[in-house]
């Protein structure tokens, strides 16, 4: 048995002891449902709980750049209702946001602005490249448009489409939530906040 497994076993024993102690204490008090309390205690990793909380409260920064922004607004409306996934609170200040939805083409002159807004967002933060333009430049293969926003900021989820519909963007948000939950508690997630 490896060292890690031994450590896990030890922790589990400790937790079981704690739970049993709690049960005994409740028994002594004569509480009626002490057995039910024992059964209803869950154990998990702190990182997982934090990740779970983060994924269900994504606050996007208002960053509409082109026609994609119309679909992004539609996503927040009652018809598609991003509130069901905890991602409806669009923030006008990057300081209060942890998700940047780059919705539209990024011009060369906008790139430093986008970078600055990204830097102003507190960690942990995520980026969705919405639509063909922000993913790869789209139809604008010319001197004015950045050929993919991943040349400026790191992107977590790319949503294809021109423009992608609100349901597509919502799917992107769900994919991002899966990613956050999968990363939760890992070294990568720790580095994000460090």
């Amino acid at each position: 048995m490896g060292l890690m497994d031994e450590a896990v076993d030890n922790v589990e024993t400790e937790i079981n002891n704690l739970k049993l102690n709690a049960k005994e204490a409740l028994d002594q008090l004569g509480a009626e449902f002490s057995g039910a309390v024992y059964d209803s205690i869950l154990t998990t990793k702190l990182g997982k709980v934090v990740g779970w909380a983060q994924k269900n409260a994504l606050w996007p920064a208002t960053f509409g750049l082109a026609c994609c922004a119309i679909e992004m607004m539609a996503m927040a409306n009652s018809r598609w209702d991003a509130a069901r996934f905890g991602a409806e609170v669009f923030r006008a200040s990057p300081r209060q946001a942890d998700l940047m939805i780059v919705s539209g083409r990024v011009s060369q002159k906008m790139a430093p602005v986008l970078k600055r807004i990204y830097n102003q967002m507190p960690e942990p933060k995520w980026v969705i490249a919405m639509g063909a333009c922000s993913s790869c430049g789209g139809i604008f293969n010319n001197y004015a448009i950045v050929q993919g926003v991943d040349r400026v900021v790191p992107v977590d989820v790319y949503v294809p489409g021109c423009p992608p519909g609100p349901e597509a963007l919502l799917y992107g948000v769900i994919k991002l939530q899966e990613k956050i939950l999968k990363e939760a508690g890992s070294e990568k997630a720790r580095q994000r906040v460090a």
């Binding site: 060369q108 790139a111 430093p112 970078k115 293969n141 010319n142 001197y143 004015a144 040349r151 400026v152």
Partner: peptide
């Protein structure tokens, strides 16, 4: 001057910003 016909379509200018 990018609207001149002999400006190469694929010519890229350096990004102004911290990266690239």
């Amino acid at each position: 001057h990018p609207l001149r016909k002999d400006y190469p379509i694929n010519k890229r200018q350096p990004l102004i910003g911290p990266m690239n």
